[in-house]
C-alpha cells in the first residue's frame, strides 16, 4: 500500500519520454500502471523514477491505417473494447480487450502497457500474435522500427524492446471477407487474468477452411501456436466433429514447460486447453462464414 519513494516525471511527447528515460537510469515507464503500481505497493520493485506516458497525445487513439488499424500504445482497453473501427476490421482485439480485468482496469490500463509488460496470462498478446499484428517502436536515437507480434514476445515478461526504446503503436490487419477470428478465455476468478486464452483465426473458402491460425496464452510463457490443431482444421469443413477432433490435438502440441499454480496446474491446463480452443474455433468459423 505504501510504495517506496520514487521520482515522477510526466512526458508530453515520445521524444521527451526518451530523454527522461536516458537521464534517469533505473526508471520505469508508466503506461496505465495496473501491473506496475501493485508491484510498487507490495515493495517488490523500487524504480528510481516513473515516467508517465499518460498525457502524450500522439500515443492515443484508434484509426484506420495501411489496410488495417493502428492503435496508439496509450489507448485504454476500454477504448479498444468499444472501438467501432476495430469492431469492423479486427473484432477479436476488441473482444479480448473487453475481457481484461474489470471496468476499472480497462479504464486505466493500456494496450502498450499490457504488451510491453508481457505477462504470460495477459489477453492481448495472444490475439495480437493470432492476427499477425505489428509493433511500432521508437528507438533511442529517434529511429523507428517495427517488429512482428510473433517475434515481439520473447519470454515471460520479456519482449523485443531494447534499452531506451518505447512502444508507440500496435498495427493490426483488417481481417477481410472470409476470415473470422475469436478469443475464448478461462479467466482466473480472482485476478481475471487468462488461465487459458485461446485465439483462432480462420479463412474459409467454399465452405472449407483454407487457413487456420491457433494461438494460446496463459498456458504458456509466451503466445504459442498449436500447429497440429491448425493442420487438422485446414481443409476441413469446420463441422462440430471436425472442430472437436482438431481441438483434441491441442494437448499434443503443448509439450514444453507450461504455466501452473495452486489454482490450475500445468497438467490441468494442458488437458483442458483443447476445450477452449474448440470454443474459439467454433466462434471464428461462424464469423468467417
Amino acid at each position: 500500500m505504501y510504495a517506496p519513494s520514487f521520482d515522477y516525471h510526466r512526458a508530453s511527447s515520445v521524444a521527451e519520454a526518451q530523454k527522461l528515460l536516458a537521464a534517469n537510469p533505473g526508471a520505469k515507464l508508466l503506461a496505465g500502471g495496473h501491473s506496475l503500481l501493485p508491484v510498487l505497493k507490495l515493495r517488490l520493485a523500487a524504480p528510481s523514477a516513473l515516467i508517465d506516458l499518460g498525457r502524450i497525445a500522439e500515443l492515443k487513439g484508434v484509426s484506420a491505417a495501411n489496410g488495417g488499424v493502428r492503435i496508439g500504445a496509450m489507448t485504454t482497453h476500454a477504448e479498444i473494447a468499444t472501438s467501432p473501427v476495430l469492431a469492423k476490421s479486427c473484432g477479436i482485439v476488441a473482444e479480448a480487450a473487453a475481457q481484461i480485468g474489470d471496468m476499472a482496469v480497462r479504464n486505466r490500463g493500456t494496450i502498450g502497457g499490457s504488451v510491453a509488460h508481457a505477462d504470460p496470462a495477459a489477453d492481448l498478446p495472444t490475439v495480437l500474435v493470432a492476427v499477425g499484428a505489428t509493433m511500432e517502436i521508437a528507438g533511442a536515437g529517434g529511429a523507428t522500427r517495427t517488429v512482428a507480434a510473433a517475434d515481439f514476445f520473447q519470454g515471460m515478461m520479456t519482449t523485443a524492446l531494447g534499452d531506451g526504446e518505447i512502444l508507440t503503436a500496435v498495427w493490426v490487419p483488417a481481417l477481410g471477407a472470409g476470415t473470422g477470428a475469436a478469443y475464448a478465455k478461462f479467466a482466473h476468478p480472482a485476478s481475471r487474468y487468462a488461465v487459458i486464452g485461446a485465439a483462432a483465426s480462420l479463412t474459409v473458402k467454399n465452405g472449407a477452411c483454407e487457413r487456420a491460425i491457433i494461438i494460446v496464452g496463459g498456458v504458456t510463457a509466451t503466445p504459442t501456436a498449436l500447429p497440429s490443431v491448425a493442420a487438422a482444421l485446414t481443409g476441413s469443413n469446420l463441422s462440430a466433429e471436425a472442430i472437436a477432433a482438431a481441438a483434441g490435438k491441442a494437448a499434443g502440441d503443448l509439450t514444453g514447460d507450461l504455466m501452473g499454480d495452486v489454482f490450475a496446474s500445468s497438467e490441468y491446463r494442458r488437458h483442458v486447453t483443447g476445450a477452449y480452443v474448440a470454443r474459439a474455433v467454433a466462434a471464428a468459423a461462424a464469423r468467417a462464414r
Binding site: P38, L42, H188, P189, A190, S191, V262, F263
Partner: peptide, 16 residues
C-alpha cells in the same frame, strides 16, 4: 500464505 493477495484469493463477484 500462498493466496496472500486479492489477485490469488478469489471472492464472489456479482457478474458470475
Amino acid at each position: 500464505l500462498v493466496t496472500g493477495t486479492l489477485m490469488d484469493y478469489a471472492i464472489p463477484r456479482a457478474d458470475v
